[in-house]
Each structure stands twice: as structure tokens, then as C-alpha cells.
């Protein structure tokens, strides 16, 4: 491994750690709503939800957007393109809580990247703050990867891990799951990562978007739930 790779890998590990203060631990990204509806209630139903509900949309939403944002964040960064991608990524979450969760995490992540590493992360962050752009997590991750020197595939792998691990971490608090059950599931789901990256690479702007009305409704109903553990 050369020194550049060691540098970006250390940076990506740092940003992926639960110790990194993005606030992701406070969100279930709609899972708590589906648990309230009784759809996700044990390891088997969680597995089905992750494999059939969570993974496929990633290849049509966050992953291609992150790849395009990484491309646009070269030297010099294409700020108009990045603004458009921020708005587009935000528009692909119709329910308010998951959208605001992504924006809150992305905002925190980009603020940290600007402070810790400067460069394109700072340039884009300053423009986004000045003009009121949303800063979704997938675009923030792409900018963070760029400033660390990480390849776009590493950014995308990080996003898959964050999406799945965040959901599984929330599930531990919502369901009766042991550590072995959780980590065998996490390993199984993460094995789909190469296939997701290949699908994302084939995605065109016309292909963008997902359709999961059950998830949307559960997330919408979570906004007014009588009790809840998570913000989203």
C-alpha cells in the first residue's frame, strides 16, 4: 500500500467510525416506523427489509449521486453541478424525516470535513451555507472522499456501509437481536456491495429514483408517533 492510499484509507475509516460525530446514531431512517407497523419485527423480517427494501434503491439514489458529485468535485469544482446534485438527492426522499436525517448528517459531515481537511470541502460548504443548499449525506461523503484523495468507489462503499450499519444499529435498539445475529446479517448484506456498485455505475439520470410507498408511509407516520426512540 502506498502512502496516498494509507492516507485516504485512514481518513475514510475515521469518518466511518461511530465515534465520528455525525449524529447518525439518533436516526433509524424509517425503520422505527416499519417496526411500529409490525412489518419489521425479528431477524428474518429485518433481513428481508435490508436485502429487498434498503439495498436496491441505493443503486438508483445515493450511490450514483455520490459518484457524480465526486466527479464534479475535481479541480476546479463544478459548483453549479454540485448544487443541482444536492437538490436532486434531497428530492429523492419524499418523506420529511429521512430527508432531514440525510441533510442533518450531511451538514455535520461536510462541516467536519471543511474544518479538518479544508480544500474542496470548505469551498463547497461555504457556498452551500451562503446560498442555502441542502447538503445530503451522499454529496457530503463524496466531497469528503475527494478532499481525502479517496477514489469514488471507496466513497460508495462507505455509503453502503453507513446505510446498512446505521439501520442494523437502530434495529438492535428496536428488536430483540443478539450480537451474533446482527453481525452475521451485516456480513451477508454487505456482500452485495460489489453488485450495488456495478448497478450504480450503469445508472443514468433517467434511471434515478426509488419507489417504496410502505417505507414512505411508515416514515411519514413516524413524524406523529406517540412514542419513539429515534428522530427519524
Amino acid at each position: 500500500m502506498d502512502a496516498d492510499a494509507a492516507h485516504w484509507l485512514a481518513g475514510v475509516l475515521h469518518a466511518s467510525d461511530t465515534f465520528y460525530p455525525t449524529g447518525a446514531y439518533a436516526h433509524s431512517f424509517g425503520l422505527e416506523g416499519l417496526a411500529h407497523e409490525g412489518v419489521v419485527h425479528d431477524r428474518a423480517s429485518l433481513r428481508l427489509f435490508l436485502l429487498e427494501g434498503v439495498l436496491p434503491p441505493l443503486a438508483r439514489t445515493d450511490l450514483p449521486i455520490a459518484g457524480w458529485a465526486w466527479d464534479a468535485a475535481g479541480e476546479p469544482p463544478d459548483l453549479a453541478r454540485l448544487r443541482g446534485l444536492c437538490l436532486l438527492a434531497s428530492s429523492m426522499r419524499g418523506a420529511r424525516e429521512p430527508r432531514e436525517a440525510s441533510e442533518a448528517i450531511g451538514r455535520q459531515r461536510l462541516d467536519l470535513a471543511a474544518m479538518l481537511h479544508g480544500g474542496v470541502a470548505r469551498v463547497v460548504n461555504e457556498r452551500a451555507v451562503a446560498e442555502g443548499w441542502p447538503r445530503p449525506a451522499c454529496v457530503a461523503a463524496a466531497l469528503e472522499g475527494r478532499v481525502l484523495g479517496a477514489p469514488r468507489e471507496a466513497v460508495m462503499v462507505g455509503l453502503v456501509y453507513a446505510a446498512v450499519a446505521g439501520m442494523v444499529a437502530a434495529a438492535v435498539k428496536l428488536l430483540r437481536l443478539g450480537q451474533n445475529a446482527v453481525h452475521t446479517l451485516l456480513a451477508e448484506v454487505l456482500a452485495a456491495t460489489p453488485r450495488l456498485l456495478a448497478e450504480a455505475a450503469r445508472c443514468t439520470p433517467d434511471d434515478l429514483g426509488a419507489f417504496n410507498p410502505w417505507w414512505d408511509i411508515a416514515a411519514a407516520r413516524h413524524e406523529r408517533a406517540d412514542f419513539r426512540l429515534f428522530i427519524s
Binding site: E37, V39, E52, L87, S91, G94, L208, G209, A210, W214
Partner: peptide, 25 residues
């Protein structure tokens, strides 16, 4: 002039069939 919603259903019916079954609808 700004996008506020983008969604796309794309595929054969198998994915929705599985999801409908999972959600008991």
C-alpha cells in the same frame, strides 16, 4: 425551478410482489 420530488418505479413486477407480500398487502 427546483426539484422537490423525484421517484421512479422500474422493473418487472417481482420486486413489488415481494414487497407487497412482506407488508401483508
Amino acid at each position: 425551478g427546483e426539484p422537490v420530488l423525484r421517484e421512479c418505479l422500474d422493473g418487472d413486477g417481482s420486486a413489488l410482489a415481494a414487497a407487497a407480500e412482506m407488508h401483508r398487502t
